[in-house]
């Protein structure tokens, strides 16, 4: 943690970060966000998201505002309108759905080639979800199928998760907090605040 962060945490200020949560339908985006919320704010039944939801949760140093976008085919064209605001992206993949891995790759390629994302060093966190399902692909296999090694100009990280139990989620959020790019982008804000 840098000096400003310490200062900020003494002051009780938390940095606001806008995060986009993307991925195909039925990949577990809403479930993941639900798990990240404090236990008293969690809901029991998750239904397919229509349009998008805005959720907020806090970690030790950051205050996240998550745009939980709907992954259904007819709502996917909404994603690109929020790329500008996003300071980080969480991309959720259903690692048990081998058939649609190519669709996930297609959507990821579209995202990475979008003018609002292409030239920014925006951190991307991949959740290879549904690790508990039998025959699901490992996170290494998922990153191979999505050709993640080709992403050279953005920091990225992939975690195997099970959103139903919340396994692996914290690892991903910790990585997101620690990325330099997110920090650097925010330091300027603190200078103004202080």
């Amino acid at each position: 943690m840098g000096l400003f962060d310490k200062l900020a945490s003494w002051l009780g200020l938390k940095k606001e970060v806008n995060v986009l949560c993307l991925g195909l339908d039925n990949s577990g985006k809403t479930t993941i966000i639900n798990q990240l919320k404090p236990s008293n704010a969690q809901t029991q039944d998750i239904v397919p998201t229509i349009g998008f939801n805005i959720e907020k949760f806090k970690t030790s140093s950051l205050s996240f505002t998550v745009f939980d976008m709907s992954g259904q085919g007819r709502y996917r064209n909404l994603w690109e309108h929020y790329y500008k605001e996003g300071q980080a992206i969480i991309f959720v993949i259903d690692s048990a759905d081998k058939l649609r891995m190519v669709v996930a790759k297609e959507e990821l390629d579209t995202l990475l080639n979008h003018p609002d994302v292409k030239h920014r060093r925006i951190p991307i966190l991949f959740f290879a979800n549904k690790m508990d399902v039998r025959d699901s692909l490992s996170s290494v296999k998922v990153s191979q199928m999505l050709c993640l090694e080709n992403i050279k100009d953005k920091p990225w990280h992939i975690c195997a998760t099970n959103a139903l139990k919340g396994e692996g989620l914290q690892e991903g959020v910790d990585w997101l907090q620690g990325t330099r790019d997110l920090q650097d982008g925010l330091c300027l804000c603190y200078i103004f605040i202080i």
Binding site: G73, D97, L99, R100, V103
Partner: peptide, 11 residues
């Protein structure tokens, strides 16, 4: 043989 429609979750 070929058929078009919804397979899996893709229309």
């Amino acid at each position: 043989a070929l058929t078009f429609g919804r397979y899996g979750r893709e229309d």
